[in-house]
């Protein structure tokens, strides 16, 4: 009888010890808490706000330019924790500046919110510029209305590919105020032209339970088409490309992926 009681007491003590122990420390407790993250994209043209239609911009060699549409897909959007682990924000978004038609709208930017993000410390954001291989095998009919990939105008039926980025506008080729040169650059992925690429941007971000952490990003269109005065899209030579001219589409997509997107301080 005494042995039985001792055994029961021992088991009880062990149980209490097990359930009262701190199983993971403060960091594990934070994993049980969630906040929200908002990505805010501001469009720029150099140091100026990127505004469609209303604003005109000095370009290279006496040319001026005005834009009507600038958009691109981002995929595999992830935050990188301090310990290197990655937390997914979303699979795909369309960053579309078409309706940014005033400086007020440009200042406000484009915001994308993501819920249920584990609270904690993060050091970087990763995203793919374009559409991943898996998603690019889909078609708009695979998605419900409202999904970024349901937009038929962003899909090339004949190539079975989404259009990763579109840039449309007008150029004044000699600075006389006549913007009649039409610009249309649509870059997608052909079978022999893989263009999707992941980028990573360092940024210290703290996600707190039930609060929204904002990650501010800038997209500099000037960096896309005119990174330097010796390396730019010359609209006197080319005003249109549908992923036909390697020099054109690689300039656009490389610059978009490598240098045009940065964290705003």
């Amino acid at each position: 009888m005494q042995n039985k009681s001792f055994l029961l007491l021992t088991l009880l003590a062990l149980s209490l010890t097990f359930f009262s122990a701190d199983c993971g420390g403060i960091e594990d407790d934070n994993l049980e808490e969630y906040g929200q993250v908002e990505l805010n994209f501001q469009g720029l043209f150099g140091s100026d706000p990127l505004v469609m239609l209303a604003n005109e911009y000095d370009y290279e060699e006496g040319m001026d330019v005005r834009f009507q549409l600038f958009q691109f897909y981002v995929s595999e959007i992830r935050l990188v924790r301090k310990d290197g682990q990655k937390v997914k924000l979303g699979d795909i978004e369309l960053i579309n500046f078409e309706n940014i038609q005033s400086e007020a709208a440009a200042a406000k930017g484009l915001s994308f919110s993501f819920d249920d993000i584990p609270a904690g410390e993060y050091q970087a954001i990763e995203m793919g510029i374009g559409v991943t291989g898996d998603l690019n095998e889909k078609a708009p009919s695979d998605y419900a209305v409202g999904h970024p990939l349901a937009i038929q105008g962003n899909y090339w039926t004949g190539l079975s590919s989404y259009i990763f980025t579109k840039l449309e506008g007008n150029a004044d080729l000699n600075g006389d105020g006549d913007f009649t040169e039409k610009l249309t650059f649509h870059i997608g992925e052909k079978e022999d032209v893989p263009l999707y690429q992941l980028i990573s941007l360092d940024y210290d971000l703290t996600v707190v339970k039930d609060q929204t952490a904002i990650l501010p990003l800038a997209v500099d269109l000037k960096q896309v088409i005119s990174p330097s005065s010796t390396n730019f899209l010359d609209f006197r030579e080319v005003s249109q490309d549908h992923t036909n001219q390697a020099a054109v589409y690689t300039l656009i997509i490389d610059n978009l992926q490598k240098s045009a997107i940065r964290v705003r301080q």
Partner: peptide, 9 residues
């Protein structure tokens, strides 16, 4: 026109 689609060429 200023807002004519640039795809019209």
């Amino acid at each position: 026109s200023k807002n004519e689609s640039p795809n019209i060429r």
